[in-house]
């Protein structure tokens, strides 16, 4: 009865949701970048810049969240959990940025079926993560949120399989050594995005268990 009289501090949910929107935007820009690689028509530099911009906005939101944590007596969910979740979300965006920048760094001219598949899986996972974060404030949507987290984890294990297939394809006989080296690195970066999504999803599950 007293808990509803305490300062509610719903802005933490809003900031978390705002950050996860940057993650979705970053993942979609990365997806377009990889899908359109080598078509000769797309302004790749502009897409990389877009990803970098989202990453920067994400950093600002994260800084704001941490600043607010230092200025709040109460938080709607556990303080450490807010910190961990914003960390996981920010890490996702950082790795997306690494993926986008690796294309130029490794001089990747053509995308592969597997790279497109991995990019599409990460965009999907980020979108579901965003929906889960956005629903966090609403306790009545706990079951739905939990489902979204489970889906993110399923997507991650799907991505693992794609990565294994992709690496196996690289090590076929007569493989180009340079191509193999850089694509192996690139796939593993792409898969890291999904690992980060999974971390965030697990954090959300933990929050749901404590607050259900």
């Amino acid at each position: 009865m007293f808990s509803s009289l305490m300062p509610q501090r719903k802005e933490f949910f809003e900031m978390l949701a705002a950050h996860s929107e940057q993650v979705v935007a970053g993942a979609n820009a990365t997806l377009r970048l990889i899908n359109n690689l080598g078509d000769g028509k797309t302004d790749l530099a502009a897409l990389v810049k877009e990803v970098n911009d989202h990453e920067e906005t994400g950093d600002q939101i994260k800084a704001k969240v941490i600043e607010r944590l230092h200025q709040s007596f109460t938080t709607p969910i556990n303080r450490d959990q807010i910190h961990s979740l914003i960390d996981d979300l920010d890490m996702t965006l950082n790795v997306l940025q690494s993926v986008a920048n690796a294309i130029g760094m490794y001089n990747i001219k053509q995308s592969t079926v597997e790279a497109r598949e991995l990019a599409s899986l990460s965009a999907d996972a980020c979108m579901r993560l965003n929906r889960a974060v956005a629903a966090l404030a609403d306790k009545s949507r706990g079951a739905e949120t939990l489902n979204l987290c489970k889906e993110v984890e399923e997507i991650e294990s799907k991505a693992d399989k794609v990565q294994h297939r992709a690496i196996a394809a690289l090590f076929q006989e007569n493989a180009n050594v340079w191509q193999t080296m850089k694509m192996r690195e690139f796939y593993s970066l792409q898969e890291s995005v999904l690992d980060c999504c999974q971390e965030a999803a697990k954090m959300i599950e933990e929050i749901l268990i404590e607050n259900s």
């Binding site: 007293f2 305490m6 300062p7 200025q71 709040s72 007596f73 109460t74």
Partner: peptide, 20 residues
């Protein structure tokens, strides 16, 4: 007890529990 806790939370609204 509950009322005092609510009151304290509002008085220290913009400080972290560590600072309070």
């Amino acid at each position: 007890g509950g009322f005092l806790m609510v009151l304290v939370a509002w008085i220290f609204k913009n400080r972290s529990p560590y600072q309070a």
